[in-house]
Write a protein that binds this DNA or RNA. Structure first.
Lengths: 343, 343
DNA sequence: GTGAAAGCGCTAACAG
DNA sequence: CTGTTAGCGCTTTCAC
């Protein structure tokens, strides 16, 4: 069913049907009703491809995600969708599926570039008015996306300085958590870092050190360990720390998965949480939802990052902003019951 | 940059450029090279909108999801993407965002219909060749999607009998789990059901009863409870059962969240898992990844459901199958260490 | 108020 | 091997 056919059925010209459809010229009530009736009866829906082609405007934004199965991706997409829907934009999703490909393929880089090219064929070919790139890790993206004359916003990662990006605060969040521990009288700290070489791990550790430095507290090097983001890393590291006589009164784990390991280590060593040892995490992950006592952790503003990315992209598209924005959104601290007051 | 411009730069006709681009007619090596060089230099990408319009073929399939933030949705999308990518189809995602809307709005049905209509405007308007509808619960969808002359496949839900659908096996899976318990000598069962009125809950319970009936085991009505899919439901129900003198030797929880509640109840009552009581779950959810001992559970074949839905849709599109398919995929039983041998 | 006509970027006969 | 031409479904001057 095409606009032309509707016009024929109504005995009017295609132009008139278009006027009715888009309210783009005055039409007599009589013809309008006749046309609207036919449209309803036939279930006609205008061909967006043709319309976009003709108008040279698609109101389409592309969402290019590295891997949709990584937990945060879906929430960011949801946030983007919310803004796009509100502003009358449609979205097209391209899922690079990096996770499964990295596992199964050998020469990552060449294949990655090939996939990006394919994605860009679709994104540009579909005439998207801009692109949001959602990373699977928070890191610097190699500039695999060549310039395309259309705005691009990076989310949960960043790239060249000319591109806007939206991230969450690692440093400040751990700084705040650590400060809360200090305010509760803790002086003897243990810390379990994330994977070596990971940027968020480094940033989170920075925040931790800043809070300690500000309070003039020194860290016993024996009480700092790398848990590699994993449960067992947290478990083993905490066990070592907690078996000592002067075990730390508070252990800051840089994510929840490691923090659960710390919980189990404390139980195994026979220490109570939070009476004997206070524990904090990061992420507000599914895994801690029924941990007892509830752990102090931080929730990443994932949906909000989607909102922000979409809003900035639309402002770029509409020419409201020209220069790149670098947005760092705060996390929400969740207090829990895993921190005790000392002295 | 358009095909016509490329043609002008190369001093040939638009047709020739099209021939090169699509390998649709023999072109002399000389002109081909010249054109390819210009394409590479200019970074030209063909306008998919124009191409699709002209060819009356989009190779686009629509993915209509009720809510992308519901855990299983992303994995199903990923599965669909994998097949689509392999077969040279692009996908467009429409996220109804039902979850947040149901929470914040009053008259669900009217708004739901409005949203579906909007989604169909996009899906049909973009000339998708077929649609996969991904539910947020496994249930019968009210037929809000009017016929559109294009194939539609339901995934993680079902609709009218004329439509294909892809689901996973609830009944058979719990039957198998229960049978394993019976084979391990268990006779005194406790069961914690999901939400009342939920279809998967009913089906899972059916499977449980079938295994018991087959073995001639009767269920003590005191040992059957509804946990409403939630941790606390599982916890409270299990506590009651386990405090009795003749407490069940095995508790079948119909999902993992409730099973974690059962774990905690057993600990509180002072029973060991699996020596005193065996426990099973369902879903292989994130929440149980570090439970000790590892729980026997079942993993839903989410990515495979995506594969299957995409494959069936493409067969419908290509006319290979005409009648509706009703696919029930098996779950994978994960043995764990939460079941002991009795007698 | 309404219609005729041109054209968005591309492909596909058909000629040559 | 290459070009001419028509047209996919729609919008938009510009007339009337």
């Amino acid at each position: 069913m095409t606009l032309k056919e509707i016009a024929e059925m109504a005995g009017v010209s295609a132009a008139t049907v278009s006027y009715v459809l888009n309210n783009t010229a005055p039409v007599s009530a009589e013809t309008r009703e006749k046309i609207e009736k036919i449209i309803k009866e036939t279930g006609y829906r205008s061909n967006i491809l043709a319309k976009s082609l003709r108008k040279n405007e698609t109101r389409l934004i592309g969402i290019l995600v590295e891997d949709i199965t990584v937990w945060h991706t879906a929430l960011i997409i949801d946030g983007i969708n919310e803004i796009a829907e509100a502003k009358g934009y449609n979205t097209i999703l391209y899922n690079l599926r990096l996770l499964s490909k990295i596992q199964s393929q050998f020469d990552h880089l060449a294949d990655f570039q090939k996939d990006i090219d394919k994605a860009m064929d679709v994104m540009i070919g579909m005439q998207t008015e801009g692109i949001i790139y959602v990373g699977m890790h928070d890191r610097k993206i190699i500039p695999a996306i060549q310039e395309m004359g259309k705005p691009i916003v990076y989310c949960y990662c960043y790239a060249e300085s000319e591109n806007s990006c939206v991230r969450y605060s690692n440093e400040e969040t751990v700084y705040q958590i650590t400060k809360i521990l200090i305010e509760n009288g803790h002086k003897n700290f243990g810390v379990i870092n994330g994977l070596e070489g990971s940027e968020p791990a480094a940033l989170r550790f920075e925040g931790f050190k800043r809070a300690l430095a500000e309070a003039g507290i020194t860290l016993n090097p024996e009480n700092t360990a790398c848990g590699g983001w994993k449960y067992h890393g947290g478990f083993e590291a905490a066990k070592k720390m907690l078996q000592k006589n002067n075990f730390p009164s508070a252990i800051v784990a840089m994510n929840d998965e490691m923090a659960v390991g710390v919980y189990d280590a404390a139980k195994e060593v026979g220490l109570r949480i939070p009476e004997d040892v206070s524990i904090t995490g990061f992420d507000n992950a599914e895994i801690i939802q029924h941990l007892s006592p509830r752990i102090m952790t931080a929730e990443r503003p994932l949906q909000k990052m989607g909102h922000s990315a979409a809003e900035i992209l639309l402002e770029h598209i509409n020419g409201k902003i020209k220069e790149a924005r670098n947005i760092i959104l705060p996390c929400k601290i969740i207090k829990g019951d895993s921190v005790s007051f000392r002295k």
